[in-house]
Design a protein around this nucleic acid. Structure first.
Length: 355
DNA sequence: AAAGATCCCAACCGCCTAAAC
DNA sequence: CGTTTAGGCGGTTGGGATCTT
């Protein structure tokens, strides 16, 4: 099956385009339009195959192409859309004015993909990488403990450590969800006590990965104190962990079936994150607010996403997104028919204000 | 300063789809 | 209705640019 190359028998030029060729192609298309790409090279007087001409035009010569670095907004757009659409580069490019699918694909492969991997996020699933979790947990936890020593000395270190702590918690929660027995409220300690957890009920297969090392990690975590809250780890017993004013734990939320998962969160005037609407596929979340800055950190407890919010704009978070989201996403998602059709009936969830 | 390693991206390749025949 | 073909898409790669040692 498959077609033979369109130009395999004609001895057409390959490789980089010369400025002269560019000029001929651009001039011809300006005057005549591209018409049939197959016929174009002959008509324009180019010793190239039509496919090559089309590519050169759409990826380089087209006058409406935007060149230069991707803005943070564009990066966020790509990350969000990739989380939803996958490697549908042309579909993603359709939402980024002046950017070509090829350019976005290249940018993804050379920058964004690596960034996700370095953040412990699987660039395919936009979920935390299991392998990464196992390898980085001890490191993260060591940093958490370090924070106890440094607390009160340097706010930047504290914020950074809080972030790491949140990351560690997210990863642990995710591990927990993977290893959870059918009983939804199973605790870490019960998992540790049971060295042969039942097959995870979700789609993340880690059968065979739950080895002694993992159990050791889980066990060690379940025994440490939560440095931010000054109380025993909240993983085992989330409902009993409310202590400090900058550490809030919200109850378990309903799990939804829809694979498209995003939700809208608004940093409220009070010190908590109010989820106004959105589809939720995570089980619970926590909000942290540093006492020394206005930034919030929202942690989705199955490890899907962490986010910092500034100001009062609404934010949309999709799984795997880790960073500052731009405002306007909610409008984008709701206005774009291709996305709004994917969004389920949005449940309303508004946690009680934290005392 | 030079050599090797790594990064980056333009361009190619092969497959898929839909329109034309 | 089956076959052919143009256009489009995503994966991959070659080689120039840049960085590191």
């Amino acid at each position: 099956m498959g077609r033979s190359p369109c130009c395999d028998e004609s001895r057409v030029k390959k490789g980089p385009w010369s400025p002269e060729e560019d000029e001929i192609l651009a001039k011809y298309i300006k005057e005549h339009g591209h018409g049939s790409w197959r016929a174009l090279p002959k008509l324009a007087g180019l010793n190239r195959c039509g496919k090559s001409c089309r590519l050169r035009w759409t990826n380089y010569l087209r006058p409406d192409i935007k060149r230069g670095k991707f803005s943070p907004e564009e990066e966020n757009t790509i990350l969000h859309l990739h989380a939803i659409l996958g490697n549908k580069w042309s579909a993603i490019a359709g939402h980024l004015e002046g950017r070509t699918d090829n350019e976005i694909k290249n940018y993804w492969n050379t920058h964004l993909k690596k960034r996700l991997i370095n953040s412990g996020i699987d660039p395919v699933t936009h979920r935390p990488s299991t392998v990464d979790m196992f390898s980085s947990l001890p490191h993260l936890l060591a940093l958490v403990n370090l924070n106890e020593l440094l607390m009160g000395h340097q706010s930047s270190i504290e914020e950074h450590t809080l972030r790491l702590q949140a990351e560690a918690m997210a990863k642990l929660q995710y591990l927990q969800s993977l290893t959870q027995a059918p009983t939804p409220q199973a605790t870490t300690s019960s998992m540790v006590n049971d060295p042969c957890p039942t097959t995870p009920s979700n789609n993340n297969h880690i059968n065979g990965l739950m080895d002694i090392e993992t159990l050791k990690i889980l066990s060690s975590i379940s025994q440490i104190e939560d440095p931010a809250c000054g109380s025993p780890s909240m993983f085992g017993n989330p409902s009993s962990s409310q202590v400090r004013e900058d550490c809030f734990s919200f109850p378990r939320l309903p799990e939804l079936q829809n694979p498209i998962s995003s939700f809208q969160a608004t940093p409220s005037k009070e010190n908590f994150m109010k989820v106004e609407e959105g589809s939720l596929n995570f089980t619970s979340f926590q909000s942290y607010k540093s006492p020394k800055s206005s930034s919030h950190q929202l942690l989705v407890n199955d490890g899907d996403a962490t986010m910092k919010c500034h100001g009062d704009d609404p934010y949309i978070i999709t799984p795997g997104f880790d960073g500052i989201s731009s405002s306007g996403w909610s409008d984008f998602l709701l206005e774009d028919p291709s996305f709004s059709s994917l969004l389920p009936q949005i449940p309303f969830y508004s946690p009680s204000p934290i005392p």
